[in-house]
Amino acid sequence: MIKSELVARLAQANPHLYQRDVERIVSTIFDEISAALARGDRVELRGFGAFSVKSRPARTGRNPRTGAPVHVDEKFVPFFKTGKELRERLNNADIPEGKLLAAEEGDEDDED
């Protein structure tokens, strides 16, 4: 599902709203979450999940081709932790075999 499909589904469920208002509602929500993260705030949506920002400290990396040391600045990465209800729902849902992607290497950042 992409954003326009989400908007279409919401518009269908709310026939009294204009489609452009539904678009604004969806954009407002995600713009608000982005703005909060850009302030370094955490966004907690019980039952769904929580967004936060993790900082990766500055380090000295290496150019893999030449081996020359390169300074890498401190970096901030957005992080999402799935809420308990949603996690349980996904694990109990009836999802057809083969529809899901298999776990990738280095995908081990869910702690529980």
């Binding site: 407002t28 929500i29 608000e32 979450i33 909060a36 302030r39 705030d41 955490r42 966004v43 907690e44 949506l45 019980r46």
Partner: peptide, 8 residues
């Protein structure tokens, strides 16, 4: 700060 549904 922590942003919640209420803020959204």
């Amino acid at each position: 700060e922590t942003i919640t549904r209420a803020h959204l």
